[in-house]
Design a binder for these strands. Structure first.
Lengths: 357, 357
DNA sequence: GTTAGGGTTGCATGCGTATGCAAGCGCCGG
DNA sequence: CCGGCGCTTGCATACGCATGCAACCCTAAC
């Protein structure tokens, strides 16, 4: 059994008694071709099992209709959700997804080179930082780049994120309002914009309102690291009575350690707040109070923006921030007031509305 | 700002003072070219930021070095793990991954057509069934197809799976040995080979050993469906004292419902056994006894087989079954004997060794 | 009857790279 | 000194499709 050759447009043309151009036009929406010819071509194509070769097409059109997508940290359930939504969103617009997973913690450069060799129409980097060398390279090649759930220090790269800063501030206010006094913060990846922004929102509000800075540990957005950090934090004599975890994934790790290794009850002995509002965090066992990053709106914004950048290379840099809510569940003691129902969920809205992004 | 043209091999050739062929050879490992020429080309390429165009290359070589990967059910943490391993495995062999997510429950045909247009070197279908029409089409086009965690009724399609049948049998024996008498089975997707095989192993052993068939509900491998099924099962007057859940993802759903809606204690009031041994199921809160499908070995087998099929189209159909273990944790009462330590885990090995696959 | 114009069609070419073939070069043994 | 061989190199072409251009047909308007 040898590898068979695919039928080509020329084969179809011969069978249908038309030129190869006609076959091409028959498969190009909006091309100038008589309905009867199109039908004859379609029939011949069916007989031969012909499908236009996307590779050859891309070579001539100079558009691949492929979008490179980088995603690491699939352990965090936020990202599988994102991938799924992204896949459907891009597919609906006629794009394919070339997926690659950069080695965690490092720049994505080497694999990215492979992806760029495919002349992708755009690049979406989820939870990935971009080396400035590569940013320049994409800029020079005119390849739109979009950071998802990250921003770049180089502000020329567009991004879609949640409200990291506002979320951090709101969580600080929430925890203080509910009477916590020994706060802890569990950072994600140190040089990630999300972790930085969430932390500076959190600490910023505390400082501005005369509260001491929180205890601090680093969990690198990973389960085991977060669990280890939780052990350090909870073993302290001045153990915190509330911990803001950089994301839900780490918060579940902290909950596991707190309950099963320290025998703590949540939220009686320890309050937990996460970020993302996704995955197991919603299950009754965790019932995590968390600032939401709504996947579908974020992905919708991403798809819309990336398509715009592809169609109009002159699209200016944009940083879209998708609105989130502090979803209140059972993992943190509740403040006496400010909780309101919204779309069948309980969310927290501080009474004085002076929180700014 | 207009889209810039990429540098081509001809541009590099001109700058380096060689022919375009020389540039091509400079980037082709093993091609006949003088070291000094290669260096000059490399330098010119560096100056121009040249990278070979993978699209044009694929057109001439008739090999895309792209593998189409279908994956649905990313909610089940098994699959993100698989994706991650697969990505690294394929990348290490120089392949890119064109990912698409078929609409759950239906055949993947429409999107698959788009993927086939890219002349992928092979197709890996994870948790996806293949219509026989499409199987024929791939067969005719000589595109290797590999089913991951599924088998096909058409036995001509190769596959990599876990030990579904043996796992099901072993779990039956395990639950009976630990004194359970009212068993339940929570099926996944009815027409999936995994669910069928696990069930027939489970029920087969029970029948052969004179036990009544289990109560049965369907959870479709989905969290909410499984939760609903659990409610039906646990509300019965003859509520089961042990449930074998078709996978860990459904088992966590059942655990949530049992604890938080029925106030049951696990395993005192209800024993749970899952399948996959992955994700949150390992966390202390669930501590799920589960038959393992080891991701890395399964992916290794997949990558090796798919590469073999690509390199040698004459590779015969193969159905690889990757060995698993019944990993014993806390979600099910333990039998008086048969638990042994293996690689820092507790696994169950029945005393009489008459279990066959 | 003539002409303008819109709708179709085929021809020729280009997209960027790989590769068979033949030519060129230097080196060695006879 | 010459023939032959092996290593490099360039030339020409093919891969499969899209598309500008010109040719063509037909209808409608004059």
């Amino acid at each position: 059994m040898t590898r068979k050759r695919h039928a080509t447009a020329t084969d179809v043309a011969r069978l249908a008694g038309v030129s190869q151009s006609a076959v091409s036009r028959a498969f190009t929406p909006g091309a100038s071709i008589a309905e009867e010819t199109r039908a004859r071509v379609a029939e011949a194509a069916r007989q031969l099992g012909y499908r236009p070769n996307a590779i050859a097409r891309s070579l001539t059109t100079r558009r691949s209709r492929i979008i490179g997508v980088a995603a690491s940290y699939l352990q965090n359930h936020f990202y599988p959700d994102v991938l799924e939504a992204l896949s459907r969103g891009l597919q609906a617009r006629g794009y394919q997804m070339l997926l690659f997973m950069p080695d965690a913690g490092r720049h994505a450069d080497p694999q990215l080179q492979e992806v760029l060799a495919w002349r992708v129409d755009a690049l979406i980097l989820a939870s990935t930082t971009l080396s400035s060398a590569l940013a320049d390279q994409c800029q020079a090649a005119g390849i739109p780049v979009l950071l998802f759930n990250r921003t770049s220090r180089a502000p020329s790269v567009s991004s879609v994120t949640g409200e990291n800063l506002r979320g951090g501030r709101l969580i600080a206010e929430f925890l203080v309002a509910s009477g916590h006094r020994r706060l802890g913060f569990l950072a994600g990846i140190e040089n990630s914009s999300t972790s930085r922004d969430r932390e500076s929102g959190f600490c910023g509000w505390l400082q501005e309102n005369g509260h001491p800075p929180p205890l601090r540990e680093v969990g690198l957005y990973q389960f085991e690291e977060a669990a280890a950090a939780a052990r350090r934090l909870l073993a302290r004599p001045d153990r915190p009575d509330a911990i803001f975890c950089g994301n839900d994934h780490m918060a579940t790790a902290v909950a596991e350690v707190a309950r099963h290794e320290f025998g703590l009850r949540i939220p009686r002995d320890l309050s937990l707040v996460g970020f993302d509002d996704t995955g197991p965090a919603r299950w009754p066992s965790f019932s995590l109070t968390s600032f939401s990053q709504p996947v579908q709106p974020m992905v919708d914004a991403t798809v819309a923006l990336v398509c715009e950048m592809i169609e109009d290379p002159a699209t200016p840099t944009r940083h879209e921030v998708v609105r989130g809510e502090l979803v209140v569940r059972g993992s943190a003691r509740m403040p006496p007031e400010g909780c309101v129902s919204l779309a069948e969920q309980l969310v927290w809205r501080p009474v004085r509305n002076d929180i700014t992004g």
